[in-house]
Amino acid sequence: MNLYGILKSAHSGWRYIVLILLVVALLQALAGWLGKKGYTEGNRKLNVFTLISAHIQFLFGLILYFLSPLTKGPSSEALYRYWKMEHIAIMLLAVILITVGNSKSKKITDGVAKHKAIAIFFGLALILIIGSIFMMVKNDPSRTLFGVS
């Protein structure tokens, strides 16, 4: 298997780690925010692991962006436009939201407000990621929703 194949497999598999961590962190933040709970060291660690996993995923994707034949086609075709412009822009925005949310939560002293910041920013990132997955399925006939036809 060549470097492109290895990175593509890593990027495809790592997405599940990112999604699971993001969903768990979001649910925990919502529970903390709405339940008016304190912010624990466990919350902080989960948020940092979510941040790190998203950055690793973005790094895999960025390398793939320059290696993939899907970014070399004409932008006038939906398939190539999605992979060349839309996917990377949406994912960059999602990673920025995760980073900003984590950073904002560090600067806040109140536990409930920390949970609120995480819930808002991580929630927006999750919405973007899920939206991008639906766009991918629509624009790339070879892809399915989470591997389900």
Rank of each mutant, 00 (worst) to 15 (best):
V23E: 01
E41F: 05
A31S: 07
F49S: 11
G42Y: 01
M1A: 12
H55Q: 15
L26V: 08
L64K: 06
T99P: 11
K8T: 10
K106L: 13
L62Q: 09
W33R: 00
A54W: 06
L70T: 13
A29K: 00
I98S: 07
Y39H: 13
W14D: 07
I52Y: 12
Q28H: 03
M136W: 07
L128F: 14
L124Y: 12
S132C: 15
G123R: 02
T99N: 10
L21D: 06
H55Y: 05
N47L: 00
S76P: 07
T71I: 06
I6P: 06
G42H: 01
Y16P: 01
F49V: 12
I127V: 15
I129H: 03
L3D: 06
L46K: 04
K84S: 14
K84V: 05
M91E: 05
I17K: 01
S12F: 08
L3N: 10
L34F: 04
M91V: 13
L62V: 04
Y65D: 02
L3H: 09
I130L: 15
F49C: 11
S142H: 12
F49M: 15
G147L: 02
L126G: 07
S12Y: 10
G32W: 00
F146T: 02
I88E: 04
K84Y: 09
V48Y: 12
L67S: 05
S68F: 05
S68M: 08
H11C: 01
V48R: 14
S76H: 14
I108W: 00
D110Y: 12
K114P: 03
I52M: 10
K8P: 03
I127D: 04
P141M: 08
N43H: 12
S68V: 14
S105I: 08
G123T: 08
F49I: 14
A94F: 12
Y82T: 06
I56A: 14
T144V: 09
I133Q: 13
S132K: 14
V148R: 15
A25N: 02
F66R: 14
I52R: 08
S53Q: 08
L30W: 13
Y82Q: 11
L62N: 11
G131T: 12
R143T: 14
I108L: 14
V137W: 08
G61N: 02
A113Q: 15
L59R: 03
A31H: 08
A54M: 08
A119S: 02
L19D: 03
Y80V: 07
I133V: 15
N2T: 09
A25Q: 02
I52L: 15
R81I: 04
P69Y: 11
Y39M: 02
L7D: 02
L62Y: 14
D140G: 06
G32N: 00
K36H: 13
N102A: 05
H11E: 00
N43I: 07
L92S: 13
I63Q: 07
L22G: 13
A94Q: 06
L67H: 04
K106E: 14
S75L: 13
D140N: 12
L64Q: 05
F121D: 13
L27W: 10
I6E: 09
T99K: 05
A31T: 03
N43S: 11
F60V: 05
Y16L: 00
K8M: 09
M136E: 15
G42W: 02
S149N: 10
A78I: 13
T71D: 03
A29Q: 01
L92G: 11
K116I: 04
V112S: 01
K107E: 11
L27I: 14
